[in-house]
Protein backbone atom coordinates (compact mmCIF):
# COMPACT_ATOMS: atom_id res chain seq x y z
CA UNK A 1 0.00 0.00 0.00
CA UNK A 2 2.61 2.52 1.00
CA UNK A 3 5.37 3.61 -1.34
CA UNK A 4 8.02 1.00 -0.98
CA UNK A 5 11.50 2.37 -1.22
CA UNK A 6 13.31 -0.55 0.32
CA UNK A 7 15.73 -2.69 -1.62
CA UNK A 8 14.18 -5.42 -3.74
CA UNK A 9 14.00 -8.75 -1.92
CA UNK A 10 15.47 -11.72 -3.79
CA UNK A 11 13.37 -14.45 -5.38
CA UNK A 12 13.62 -16.85 -2.51
CA UNK A 13 12.24 -14.28 -0.10
CA UNK A 14 9.31 -13.57 -2.39
CA UNK A 15 8.53 -17.27 -2.74
CA UNK A 16 8.74 -17.76 1.01
CA UNK A 17 6.41 -14.86 1.63
CA UNK A 18 3.95 -16.14 -0.95
CA UNK A 19 4.04 -19.59 0.55
CA UNK A 20 3.48 -18.17 3.99
CA UNK A 21 0.60 -16.08 2.76
CA UNK A 22 -1.02 -19.02 1.05
CA UNK A 23 -0.56 -21.44 3.88
CA UNK A 24 -3.98 -21.75 5.55
CA UNK A 25 -3.73 -20.17 8.93
CA UNK A 26 -7.00 -19.76 10.72
CA UNK A 27 -6.72 -16.53 12.55
CA UNK A 28 -9.17 -13.67 12.73
CA UNK A 29 -7.36 -11.44 10.29
CA UNK A 30 -7.14 -14.09 7.59
CA UNK A 31 -10.81 -14.89 8.00
CA UNK A 32 -11.76 -11.26 7.80
CA UNK A 33 -9.67 -10.77 4.67
CA UNK A 34 -11.29 -13.87 3.17
CA UNK A 35 -14.69 -12.51 4.01
CA UNK A 36 -13.90 -9.19 2.39
CA UNK A 37 -12.58 -10.97 -0.72
CA UNK A 38 -15.78 -12.98 -0.82
CA UNK A 39 -17.73 -9.76 -0.70
CA UNK A 40 -15.56 -8.37 -3.49
CA UNK A 41 -16.07 -11.44 -5.69
CA UNK A 42 -19.79 -11.33 -5.02
CA UNK A 43 -19.97 -7.63 -5.90
CA UNK A 44 -17.86 -8.18 -9.01
CA UNK A 45 -20.17 -10.85 -10.36
CA UNK A 46 -23.26 -8.86 -9.46
CA UNK A 47 -21.91 -5.81 -11.21
CA UNK A 48 -20.91 -7.86 -14.25
CA UNK A 49 -24.42 -9.21 -14.59
CA UNK A 50 -25.90 -5.81 -13.94
CA UNK A 51 -23.79 -4.25 -16.67
CA UNK A 52 -24.51 -7.02 -19.13
CA UNK A 53 -28.27 -6.63 -18.95
CA UNK A 54 -27.98 -2.93 -18.40
CA UNK A 55 -30.91 -0.99 -19.64
CA UNK A 56 -32.45 2.33 -18.77
CA UNK A 57 -33.22 1.25 -15.24
CA UNK A 58 -29.53 1.01 -14.32
CA UNK A 59 -28.65 4.50 -15.43
CA UNK A 60 -28.16 7.37 -13.08
CA UNK A 61 -30.47 10.31 -13.01
CA UNK A 62 -28.27 12.68 -15.00
CA UNK A 63 -27.79 10.10 -17.74
CA UNK A 64 -31.51 9.50 -17.87
CA UNK A 65 -32.12 13.23 -18.14
CA UNK A 66 -29.57 13.42 -20.94
CA UNK A 67 -31.18 10.53 -22.77
CA UNK A 68 -34.59 12.06 -22.32
CA UNK A 69 -33.22 15.32 -23.63
CA UNK A 70 -31.70 13.56 -26.63
CA UNK A 71 -34.93 11.78 -27.35
CA UNK A 72 -37.03 14.92 -27.10
CA UNK A 73 -34.58 16.84 -29.28
CA UNK A 74 -34.68 14.03 -31.78
CA UNK A 75 -38.46 14.06 -31.62
CA UNK A 76 -38.65 17.76 -32.29
CA UNK A 77 -36.12 17.43 -35.09
CA UNK A 78 -38.15 14.66 -36.68
CA UNK A 79 -41.29 16.70 -36.13
CA UNK A 80 -39.69 19.62 -37.94
CA UNK A 81 -38.63 17.36 -40.74
CA UNK A 82 -42.11 15.90 -40.95
CA UNK A 83 -43.65 19.37 -41.08
CA UNK A 84 -41.24 20.36 -43.80
CA UNK A 85 -41.98 17.29 -45.87
CA UNK A 86 -45.69 17.76 -45.33
CA UNK A 87 -45.56 21.34 -46.56
CA UNK A 88 -43.46 20.26 -49.52
CA UNK A 89 -46.05 17.64 -50.33
CA UNK A 90 -48.83 20.21 -50.05
CA UNK A 91 -46.90 22.53 -52.30
CA UNK A 92 -46.43 19.80 -54.85
CA UNK A 93 -50.10 18.89 -54.69
CA UNK A 94 -51.14 22.52 -55.12
CA UNK A 95 -48.75 23.07 -57.96
CA UNK A 96 -49.91 19.92 -59.68
CA UNK A 97 -53.47 21.19 -59.26
CA UNK A 98 -52.43 24.51 -60.71
CA UNK A 99 -50.69 22.72 -63.51
CA UNK A 100 -53.84 20.73 -64.16
CA UNK A 101 -55.91 23.91 -64.29
CA UNK A 102 -53.40 25.54 -66.60
CA UNK A 103 -53.37 22.44 -68.76
CA UNK A 104 -57.15 22.45 -68.93
CA UNK A 105 -57.21 26.14 -69.87
CA UNK A 106 -54.55 25.52 -72.48
CA UNK A 107 -56.54 22.60 -73.87
CA UNK A 108 -59.62 24.79 -74.09
CA UNK A 109 -57.62 27.42 -75.93
CA UNK A 110 -56.28 24.75 -78.25
CA UNK A 111 -59.81 23.56 -78.97
CA UNK A 112 -61.13 27.06 -79.63
CA UNK A 113 -58.18 28.06 -81.75
CA UNK A 114 -58.29 24.72 -83.55
CA UNK A 115 -61.86 25.42 -84.59
CA UNK A 116 -60.93 28.91 -85.68
CA UNK A 117 -57.89 27.80 -87.60
CA UNK A 118 -59.63 24.81 -89.07
CA UNK A 119 -57.33 22.23 -87.54
CA UNK A 120 -60.00 20.65 -85.33
CA UNK A 121 -63.31 19.14 -86.34
CA UNK A 122 -66.35 20.93 -84.97
CA UNK A 123 -69.98 20.14 -84.45
CA UNK A 124 -73.02 22.11 -83.41
CA UNK A 125 -76.24 23.66 -84.66
CA UNK A 126 -76.12 25.42 -88.00
CA UNK A 127 -77.29 25.34 -91.56
CA UNK A 128 -76.60 23.59 -94.78
CA UNK A 129 -76.43 25.78 -97.87
CA UNK A 130 -76.54 24.12 -101.26
CA UNK A 131 -75.77 26.20 -104.33
CA UNK A 132 -76.21 24.55 -107.71
CA UNK A 133 -74.60 26.13 -110.70
CA UNK A 134 -74.83 23.67 -113.59
CA UNK A 135 -73.79 26.18 -116.25
CA UNK A 136 -70.96 27.73 -114.34
CA UNK A 137 -72.34 31.24 -114.52
CA UNK A 138 -72.00 32.12 -110.82
CA UNK A 139 -68.40 31.39 -110.10
CA UNK A 140 -66.07 32.16 -107.26
CA UNK A 141 -67.47 35.57 -106.50
CA UNK A 142 -70.82 34.15 -105.44
CA UNK A 143 -69.23 31.59 -103.20
CA UNK A 144 -67.03 34.23 -101.63
CA UNK A 145 -70.09 36.44 -101.12
CA UNK A 146 -71.84 33.55 -99.41
CA UNK A 147 -68.86 33.00 -97.15
CA UNK A 148 -68.69 36.69 -96.25
CA UNK A 149 -72.41 36.81 -95.51
CA UNK A 150 -72.14 33.76 -93.31
CA UNK A 151 -69.19 35.24 -91.46
CA UNK A 152 -71.05 38.47 -90.94
CA UNK A 153 -73.93 36.46 -89.51
CA UNK A 154 -71.64 34.87 -86.97
CA UNK A 155 -70.70 31.55 -88.54
CA UNK A 156 -68.09 29.92 -86.34
CA UNK A 157 -66.92 27.10 -88.55
CA UNK A 158 -67.71 26.13 -92.09
CA UNK A 159 -66.64 23.97 -94.93
CA UNK A 160 -67.51 23.89 -98.57
CA UNK A 161 -67.44 20.49 -100.15
CA UNK A 162 -64.61 18.88 -98.24
CA UNK A 163 -62.54 22.02 -97.84
CA UNK A 164 -62.45 23.83 -94.53
CA UNK A 165 -63.08 27.55 -94.93
CA UNK A 166 -60.76 29.69 -92.85
CA UNK A 167 -59.47 33.24 -92.95
CA UNK A 168 -57.03 32.58 -95.76
CA UNK A 169 -59.27 30.43 -97.92
CA UNK A 170 -59.20 31.48 -101.55
CA UNK A 171 -61.81 31.03 -104.26
CA UNK A 172 -60.59 30.93 -107.85
CA UNK A 173 -62.63 30.34 -110.98
CA UNK A 174 -61.52 27.34 -112.95
CA UNK A 175 -62.87 25.44 -115.86
CA UNK A 176 -65.88 23.41 -114.79
CA UNK A 177 -65.98 24.69 -111.23
CA UNK A 178 -64.27 26.69 -108.53
CA UNK A 179 -60.87 26.01 -107.08
CA UNK A 180 -61.14 26.45 -103.29
CA UNK A 181 -57.71 26.50 -101.64
CA UNK A 182 -56.41 24.59 -104.63
CA UNK A 183 -59.11 21.92 -104.57
CA UNK A 184 -61.40 21.86 -107.60
CA UNK A 185 -65.06 21.78 -106.56
CA UNK A 186 -67.97 21.36 -108.91
CA UNK A 187 -71.63 22.20 -108.64
CA UNK A 188 -73.48 21.63 -106.41
CA UNK A 189 -71.51 23.48 -103.78
CA UNK A 190 -72.51 22.26 -100.31
CA UNK A 191 -71.71 24.54 -97.35
CA UNK A 192 -71.79 23.09 -93.83
CA UNK A 193 -71.94 26.05 -91.47
CA UNK A 194 -71.96 26.05 -87.65
CA UNK A 195 -73.58 29.04 -86.04
CA UNK A 196 -76.97 30.25 -84.89
CA UNK A 197 -79.39 28.91 -87.55
CA UNK A 198 -81.90 31.63 -86.75
CA UNK A 199 -79.32 34.24 -87.62
CA UNK A 200 -77.59 32.50 -90.51
CA UNK A 201 -80.56 31.66 -92.69
CA UNK A 202 -82.16 35.13 -92.65
CA UNK A 203 -78.74 36.66 -93.36
CA UNK A 204 -78.56 34.66 -96.56
CA UNK A 205 -82.13 35.49 -97.48
CA UNK A 206 -82.00 39.28 -97.26
CA UNK A 207 -82.94 41.16 -100.47
CA UNK A 208 -79.90 41.44 -102.69
CA UNK A 209 -78.19 38.73 -100.69
CA UNK A 210 -76.67 35.47 -101.82
CA UNK A 211 -79.93 33.57 -102.17
CA UNK A 212 -81.46 36.38 -104.22
CA UNK A 213 -78.41 36.62 -106.46
CA UNK A 214 -78.26 32.91 -107.11
CA UNK A 215 -81.94 32.50 -107.66
CA UNK A 216 -81.99 35.44 -110.08
CA UNK A 217 -79.43 33.70 -112.28
CA UNK A 218 -80.71 31.60 -115.13
CA UNK A 219 -79.73 28.11 -114.08
CA UNK A 220 -78.50 28.43 -110.49
CA UNK A 221 -80.44 27.70 -107.35
CA UNK A 222 -79.71 27.90 -103.66
CA UNK A 223 -81.39 26.21 -100.71
CA UNK A 224 -80.85 26.71 -97.02
CA UNK A 225 -81.64 24.01 -94.45
CA UNK A 226 -81.55 24.76 -90.77
CA UNK A 227 -80.11 21.84 -88.82
CA UNK A 228 -79.74 20.96 -85.16
CA UNK A 229 -76.50 19.15 -85.75
CA UNK A 230 -73.96 20.14 -88.35
CA UNK A 231 -70.59 18.43 -88.54
CA UNK A 232 -67.63 20.33 -89.92
CA UNK A 233 -64.99 17.72 -90.15
CA UNK A 234 -62.87 18.87 -93.06
CA UNK A 235 -59.48 19.78 -91.66
CA UNK A 236 -56.86 22.21 -92.74
CA UNK A 237 -53.21 21.46 -92.41
CA UNK A 238 -51.35 23.91 -90.25
CA UNK A 239 -48.19 25.29 -91.73
CA UNK A 240 -45.46 26.47 -89.46
CA UNK A 241 -45.01 30.19 -89.90
CA UNK A 242 -41.72 30.82 -91.54
CA UNK A 243 -41.04 34.26 -90.09
CA UNK A 244 -43.58 34.92 -87.40
CA UNK A 245 -42.69 33.75 -83.90
CA UNK A 246 -44.84 33.91 -80.81
CA UNK A 247 -44.18 37.11 -78.89
CA UNK A 248 -43.84 37.04 -75.13
CA UNK A 249 -47.15 38.10 -73.68
CA UNK A 250 -48.51 37.25 -70.27
CA UNK A 251 -51.49 35.47 -71.76
CA UNK A 252 -49.54 33.49 -74.30
CA UNK A 253 -49.82 30.25 -72.36
CA UNK A 254 -50.95 28.12 -75.25
CA UNK A 255 -50.56 28.08 -78.96
CA UNK A 256 -52.58 25.93 -81.31
Amino acid sequence: MRPDLRTEPDGATVRRRLARAFSPKLNRGQLLAGLLCAVLGFALVVQFRQTQDSSLENLRETDLVRILDDVSQRTSRLQDESDELRSTRDQLLTSSNQEQVARKAAQERVDVLGILAGTAPATGPGIQLVITDPDGELGAVTLLDAVQELRDAGAEAMQVGDVRVVASTSFVNDSGGVRVDGTLLRSPYVFQVIGDPKTLSPALGIPGGVLATVNQSQSGSATVTEMDQVVVDALRRVEQPQYARPAETPSATASP
Binding site: K25, Q30, A33, C37, A38, G41, A43, Q50
Partner: peptide, 28 residues
Protein backbone atom coordinates in the same frame (compact mmCIF):
# COMPACT_ATOMS: atom_id res chain seq x y z
CA UNK B 1 -5.16 -18.70 0.94
CA UNK B 2 -8.36 -18.03 2.73
CA UNK B 3 -8.64 -14.75 0.80
CA UNK B 4 -8.43 -16.59 -2.55
CA UNK B 5 -10.95 -19.12 -1.32
CA UNK B 6 -13.20 -16.27 -0.20
CA UNK B 7 -12.95 -14.66 -3.65
CA UNK B 8 -13.97 -17.94 -5.28
CA UNK B 9 -16.81 -18.44 -2.81
CA UNK B 10 -18.07 -14.90 -3.45
CA UNK B 11 -18.02 -15.40 -7.25
CA UNK B 12 -19.87 -18.70 -6.95
CA UNK B 13 -22.41 -17.18 -4.60
CA UNK B 14 -22.97 -14.28 -6.99
CA UNK B 15 -23.49 -16.69 -9.88
CA UNK B 16 -25.84 -18.90 -7.90
CA UNK B 17 -27.97 -16.23 -6.26
CA UNK B 18 -28.10 -13.85 -9.22
CA UNK B 19 -29.14 -10.92 -7.08
CA UNK B 20 -30.20 -7.61 -8.54
CA UNK B 21 -28.61 -4.44 -7.30
CA UNK B 22 -31.03 -2.22 -5.39
CA UNK B 23 -31.51 0.99 -7.34
CA UNK B 24 -30.15 3.28 -4.64
CA UNK B 25 -26.87 1.33 -4.62
CA UNK B 26 -26.48 1.16 -8.39
CA UNK B 27 -24.27 4.25 -8.88
CA UNK B 28 -21.96 3.21 -6.04
Amino acid sequence: MIAVLGLGVGIVLGLLLQPTVPPELQPY
